[in-house]
Nucleic acid binder design. Sequence first.
DNA 1: ACTGAGACTTAGGTCTAGCGCC
DNA 2: GGCGCTAGACCTAAGTCTCAGT
Length: 708
Amino acid sequence: MSGDQLHNDSQIEADFRANDSHKHKDKHKDREHRHKEHKKDKEKDREKSKHSNSEHKDSSEKKHKDKEKTKHKDGSSEKHKDKHKDKDKEKRKEEKMKSSSGDIKIKKEKENGFSSPPRIKDEPDDDGFYTSPKEDSKPLKRPREDDEWEEERYPEGIKWKFLEHKGPVFAPPYEPLPENVKFYYDGKVMKLSTKAEEVATFFAKMLDHEYTTKEIFRKNFFKDWRKEMTSEEKSTITNLSKCDFTHMSQYFKAQSEARKQMSKEEKQKIKEENERLLKEYGYCVMDNHKERIANFKIEPPGLFRGRGNHPKMGMLKRRIMPEDIIINCSKDSKIPAPPPGHKWKEVRHDNKVTWLVSWTENIQGSIKYIMLNPSSRIKGEKDWQKYETARRLKKCVDKIRNQYREDWKSKEMKVRQRAVALYFIDKLALRAGNEKEEGETADTVGCCSLRVEHIKLHPELDGQEYVVEFDFLGKDSIRYYNKVPVEKRVFKNLQLFMENKQPEDDLFDRLNTSILNKHLQDLMEGLTAKVFRTYNASITLQQQLKELTNPDDNIPAKILSYNRANRAVAILCNHQRAPPKTFEKSMMNLQSKIDAKKEQLADARRELKSAKADAKVRRDEKSKKTVESKKKAVQRIEEQLMKLEVQATDREENKQIALGTSKLNYLDPRISVAWCKKWGIPIEKIYNKTQREKFAWAIDMAEEDYEF
DNA sequence: ACTGAGACTTAGGTCTAGCGCC
DNA sequence: GGCGCTAGACCTAAGTCTCAGT
């Protein structure tokens, strides 16, 4: 049955429309008016996103090559792999021991994150208690042969057996302003109560930001501020526009200036204090490992600034007190003490979760957590698992693609919508798109929540047929703008889905993320919409690296290729950033450096030439040597110039693209590690220290022939 | 099937230490 | 030794997905 024929399948369609109208009517009550704002906003919003699309060439071609070798090498849970690995590791370790002539070298290697610490830790002291956080940056321990995997050790859902920590660090208490810093209302000095003053300072600190001029921000702020005022203040201060915070603002600017001017000693003192805090509160013990905590400091009070056009911007984020805090730790641990004179809201011992501390935030009423650093075992293992799931998808993605292509022809509207949505998620790496509560957050969408107004259909555009133009705000109100040629069937289906709908109606009115994910679950265990993003990102990196790496290139040029591969992924995932404020300037600087270098090169060449001429006449050793050294100089400068030029290209191409997010969250680190090993690129060129800590498991695990 | 709470990952913006340059 | 810049640390908002309750 063709798409066109289906169009006449009146029964189904009638059913679909009838159903539809009541459904989206109440769902989109006041969307119409929001829609207008959205449009306005959208126009203002950064004109980002070019977006070229990479098709799926990948997968099947590799299928066969993958086979045996990879299978037992990385096939996730198979035990024999571990023996394998352990042997390799043993070998490496031996080499290291032999070659490392002193402490310096050992230390260096540790920092690289490349090697296991030189002490023999795989075997006897595996269960030992770690004291140095440096030493245990190995979240995924390859077990001894008779050892068990962590997941096996812990029955389903159990995340730890022992957990001890010191509790959170609270925000410093409010320090009232000095007497000479004034607040004016309606032109007259006014002394504020401490509570009102504190909230006023939040606003004063933001005065330079554009959003203090925004209507919603001001309205929300003023409403919440008034709640903190005494009744006298409340009756006096009735109009935000009559409030003058400029003196306060100047005071804070002076303060931060003074902070910059602090002496070395003072700065050192602050640094030491921070280190002390980190040492005391920044670590916990989870099952015999000392682990770094990610965010042990409680978020200080302030004014909420959501991203994009957020309806709650400007609201007061209240101060979190010990009485708000739930502590999670094990029963047999030393339970953290609340600050003197306070108590915790609750102390619980839930080892089915990974968080140490939680509280409920007052803006959205959601729960916030203190959890472990990405370098921790528990996060690393989860991360690894994520990529293993994506690799499992690789094995069945062809089947799934064939299936959804079939489903475009289904008699059931629900199935068709699901199939088209899945096609977008797969091809364009869109996010799932959960429904959001209206009026609670900025109006953003993902795949399942796309509305008719977010796409335009062009039967023909710029010489291409069946083009879909996407224009919507996604996560963090980042604009997604893309024109994509699609299969005729998809196009026809979209026309069908859009029939008789208003712009503010859901495009996929019969679909939501729960339906979609349930279906995906049936196709593959553990499959959800976001796995496609991970899979497509990683496979794109692998494929791009293969394509772009030129074996004859030097290291900087290879790194440029890596960054380009990374960039292809960032573009696919629509990871954008605001161009850095100093972008133009720094580009100019770089260009002048390049120009200078070019001149230097010209000079060096001239010198070489004359030296050659000289040598020809004189024919003595000394002048020959001069020629040699001049030659070297030219070469060196050429290299420097090339490095600069590469840097300029890289930076220019990166203007609006953020590489970090994909590197950190979507790219299987083993691909990068393998690439580094294959081409002899030091891993530090690709991953900085933090990243090496986070990906320690991969650095340890992947060999040069690793295939995603 | 639907809902909301809860847990956890993903995300871009901002701040600042420390590096390279003069 | 001081200065300007940038990488990377820090921050916390905003997603995804699961699960329990109805």
